[in-house]
Design a protein around this nucleic acid. Structure first.
Lengths: 205, 205
DNA sequence: GTCTATAATGCGATAGAC
DNA sequence: GTCTATCGCATTATAGAC
């Protein structure tokens, strides 16, 4: 029961990539319903029917985008290593997630838009996968706590807090820039978040 | 140059309230463009033209909602008192914001939807107001730091972190419930966030 | 004040020429 | 593979009866 093998020519691959790139730009800014094929076509430099030649529908573009990106998006969490130095592993996870907010804010907003609106087109994708991944990493963190390597904290809420604090800088960037003025949001965030989690995880407290 | 005095009859007030209530439900779930007058009318138990009798347009409903709610939304921040006990003031702000995420998740998601999409209909409303409010409270926090009452932290990023951590539980509720299963998100969050900020603000570190 | 009917536009998707 | 033209539906807003 494997998927039917889909193969694409070079030109197909290039155009599919252009469309998905344009779609990321548009969907992340306007959400699914707020985005139009006209916008995506214009951004991609292709005609509207040409989009539908490569993808069967607006939904199809969107779903393909989410599936492709979710994998990349969750990689830093997967990379948390049970055999690594506990505080370093977690502090590095924080910084990697913050860097992703800085370098991939559109991806962050794409997922935020979906989740905020009840994740109608996302639940089936991450059902089973995400919960299991979080549970697995929470068990690792619990192990570190039992060994006294880090302070006693609820591991799942710890992961939530890392998501919240890092993604906030991408998802609410407009607000943050309005308040910070000329200051670089991510420079300040890097220092601040390192301090927050260093204190939180310190086993001597 | 004051606004022209708008007065409404009892029945007008009641219907306007019903419409705004329905609009909050619909806009917070689908965003501005994802929402339709049909949905709002159905939710309010009124006909579509009747909505337009009370408000001049879909925009008008949305704008009225944002203006009305922003005031309530920012009240806990305004209430931070320079003369209060520093850690208590800040820990209480955290808990009040968390309680608002629990009791007013639709309001949280309404603002999140707007901000995420670049706050096109929000910037003029909060321009001038929000930055000044944050700067004012940041100055108070800086004063507390100078007195040694709380640990040395960037006060603006501290405020961002409170927003991020509390609003996350409303805005990403679907994801959080999917991962936590039957556990009450807010019970765990209350304890976790109290610990986070107690450690972060402890002046002896 | 509230309704039904409809105008006016925007948008996803298709037809068919090239 | 790509385009122009267009269908058909959804949606905002208005007209006009009651």
């Amino acid at each position: 029961m494997t998927e039917p093998e889909k193969t694409f020519s070079r030109i197909q691959l290039r155009n599919r990539k252009r469309i998905l790139d344009a779609a990321l730009e548009v969907f992340s800014q306007n959400g699914f319903r707020g985005s139009t094929l006209d916008q995506i076509a214009s951004e991609a430099g292709l005609s509207k029917p040409n989009l539908i030649y490569y993808f069967s529908s607006k939904e199809d573009i969107h779903r393909t985008l989410l599936v492709d990106l979710l994998d990349i998006w969750l990689q830093p969490l997967r990379d948390i290593d049970a055999t690594g130095e506990p505080r370093e592993e977690l502090l590095q996870y924080v910084q990697r997630k913050l860097q992703m907010s800085k370098e991939m804010p559109r991806e962050s907003r794409l997922f935020a838009n979906e989740t905020l609106q009840g994740a109608p087109r996302l639940t089936e994708i991450m059902e089973g996968g995400l919960k299991d991944l979080v549970d697995e990493k929470a068990a690792i963190i619990d192990g570190w706590i039992a060994e006294g390597k880090i302070a006693k904290v609820d591991p799942v809420h710890l992961i939530f807090s890392i998501w919240a604090l890092t993604q906030h800088y991408a998802d609410f960037e407009v607000q943050i820039r309005a308040i910070l003025g000329k200051k670089d949001p991510f420079k300040g965030a890097e220092i601040f978040l390192d301090m927050v989690f260093r204190k939180l995880l310190d086993p001597n407290t």
